[in-house]
Amino acid sequence: MTAGGDSSSSSRGRGGSADFDLNLAPIIDCFTVLIAFLLASASFLSIGIFEATIPTPSQASSGKDLNPTASLDVIATLQENGDIALTWSGAKAGSQRVIASDGKQSIEAFAATLASLKKEVPETTPGTLELRGSGRSTYTDLIQLIEASRSTFPSVALGGI
């Protein structure tokens, strides 16, 4: 049995023995080109996502769900000065302002406030966090807030739209 079948790509050894050498050079050439192409087009940037929702006008006008006291719904509004105004309703109602430190939003204080709120309310259904930006807030600010609230409020809505 011959390896490859192409007489030019295999060489018969001395003395008529069936000693074949498969010519791997063209295969190596193909592999080199393929690997170079795949490495060049590979994306080494690992992109993840945070899922959010946009409340539709009907949802926004009707307000809350059928059992408003079962869950805790928090609205976090970023202020121009970096403060975060929190108002919550549903299982518990109230408001608080997370004061900015050095003109920047205090992410740790925001996360701690949400965590303490969640502890106080024995809710049956998970609540939602609605984020509203200001004229000065950026995409990074929003992402930081979503990241900080991920453990307490997995469901995030982008409000004021």
């Binding site: 993840g48 945070f50 959010a52 929702t53 992402i143 979503i146």
Partner: peptide
């Protein structure tokens, strides 16, 4: 504009 055209579930991309 996206929500008006039926895209109401944005996925916000971040670098992991």
């Amino acid at each position: 504009v996206a929500a008006e055209n039926g895209f109401t579930e944005p996925q916000l991309a971040v670098v992991k």
